[in-house]
Design a protein around this nucleic acid. Structure first.
Lengths: 205, 205
DNA sequence: TGTACATCAGTGAACGCGCGTTCACTGATGTAC
DNA sequence: TGTACATCAGTGAACGCGCGTTCACTGATGTAC
C-alpha cells in the first residue's frame, strides 16, 4: 500500500506497469509472462501470487485503463456543460487525448482481444465510459426535432467509431493510411461536419 | 500453378490459407509458424522454401488482402459512377463488406502490426486501395463550394476512419461498445449524416 | 526496547513442451534423348 | 514408348532456447508480549 511498505516491491502494480511498457513496445500479444516478470525484476513464479496468468494481468491493465478513461470522459463531459455541443466535443477530444497519453492502456483495452463480457469487473468499468458518451449524445439529441432525430445509441456509436478509427489509423504507425493532418484536427473537423449533418451547427458557420 | 501440378501441394498458397484460418481464430499474433505449417499438413522446415519466416507469411497474406480489397473498392466506385455520391456510398459499403467476408485478410492488413512501409510491394498495393477512396472524395469535393470545401485528403480520412471504427467496434466481439444496430446500418447512416454535414445531401431529405 | 514467532511474498530449481532454424537427405516430378 | 537423369519441394532429426507452471523453501516484515 504505502510506497515502501512492501516486502520486495509493490509487485502487483509493478507488473501492470511492466506490462504497459511491453504492450507499447510490442503490442498486447507481443510479450510473455516471463518477460513481464523480468521487466518487473522478479521471478516468473512470483507473478502467480497476484495474477492467474498473462491474460489476467492484461485484464487488470485494461481495467485500470477503463477506470482512467471513464474518469477523463466524465471530466470532459462536465467541462462542456451546460452546452450539449461543448460536452460532446470535449468528450471527443478526451477520447483522443487518452489514446495518446495512455497508449498501453488503450491497446490493452481495445486491441488485446480480451473478452470483456467474460470479466464482470471489467464490463462494469467499461460501461461507465460508454455511458458518458451516450449521455452526451442524449443531451444533443434533445436539440434535434424528434422526427429527424436518429436514435441516441446510433449517434454515440458514430462518434465512438469515428474516434476509434482516427486513433487506430492516424495516431500510430498506420496501414496504407497516411495523412498530412494531425489526428486531433481530423477528429475535431470530422465531428464538426457530422454535427452539422445532424442540424446542430449552422450550415455555414 | 495448376490444381494438381505440384510436388506435394501448392504449399505457398496452402500456408497463406492456413494463416488466414489461424488469424480468424486467434488473431494475427496468436499463432506460430509451426502451427501454420502443421495446419497446411507440412513440416515447419518446409515453410522456409516459400517464406523468410512468420512475418513474411503474414505480409503475403496482407498483400493478397490488399489486392482483393483494392479490386472491390475499385469495382464499387465504378458501380456508383457517374454519381459522386453513389460512388462514395458504394465504396463505404464495399469497405464493410470486405471486412465481413475476409476477416483474416482484414486482420492481417490492419491489426497485425506489420510495417507497411518496410515492404515496398505491400505499400504499392495498399495505396491502390486508398487511392480509390481518395478519388471518390475528390469527385465529391467538386460539388462543394470551394470556400467551404475541406481538403480532399481530410474527407477521405474521415470516411476511412469511420469505416474502420465501425468494423473494429461493431463487427466482432467488441470492447465496451455494444450496439443494437447492424454495422451496415451504422456505417450507412453515419456516412449519410456526414455527407449532409458537407452540404451534399438536402438537409431534410 | 527487546525477543520470539507467524505470515506470506518472492525464490530458485525442476519439469516437460513447443518453438524457430539448420542441415544433409530423399524421392516425386518433368525433361532430354 | 521407355530410360536415365537433373531438379528441387518437402522430410526428419537435431540443436539450443525460453516458455508456463509446480513446489518446497527462505527470509524480510509486522505483531504480540
Amino acid at each position: 500500500m504505502s510506497k515502501r511498505g512492501y516486502h520486495h516491491g509493490n509487485l502487483k502494480q509493478a507488473l501492470v506497469d511492466a506490462a504497459l511498457t511491453l504492450i507499447e513496445e510490442k503490442g498486447p500479444q507481443g510479450f510473455t509472462l516471463s518477460q513481464a516478470a523480468k521487466a518487473a525484476g522478479v521471478t516468473p513464479a512470483a507473478v502467480y501470487r497476484h495474477f492467474q496468468g498473462r491474460d489476467d494481468l492484461i485484464a487488470e491493465t485494461a481495467r485500470q485503463g477503463y477506470a482512467i478513461f471513464a474518469d477523463l470522459m466524465e471530466y470532459a463531459y462536465q467541462t462542456g456543460q451546460p452546452s450539449a455541443l461543448a460536452s460532446l466535443e470535449a468528450v471527443g477530444r478526451a477520447y483522443l487525448a487518452f489514446a495518446r497519453k495512455y497508449p498501453g492502456h488503450y491497446m490493452a483495452m481495445f486491441e488485446s482481444g480480451l473478452a470483456i463480457t467474460a470479466n464482470s469487473e471489467l464490463s462494469v468499468v467499461a460501461s461507465r465510459a460508454s455511458d458518458v458518451l451516450e449521455r452526451a449524445a442524449r443531451d444533443l439529441s434533445a436539440h434535434i426535432a424528434p422526427e429527424k432525430r436518429p436514435p441516441v445509441a446510433m449517434v454515440s456509436a458514430h462518434i465512438w467509431a469515428l474516434s476509434h478509427g482516427v486513433v487506430e489509423l492516424y495516431t500510430r504507425g498506420a496501414p496504407g493510411a497516411r495523412t498530412p493532418f494531425p489526428a486531433e484536427d481530423l477528429l475535431e473537423t470530422g465531428i464538426g461536419i457530422y454535427l452539422r449533418g445532424l442540424g446542430l451547427i449552422a450550415p455555414d458557420s
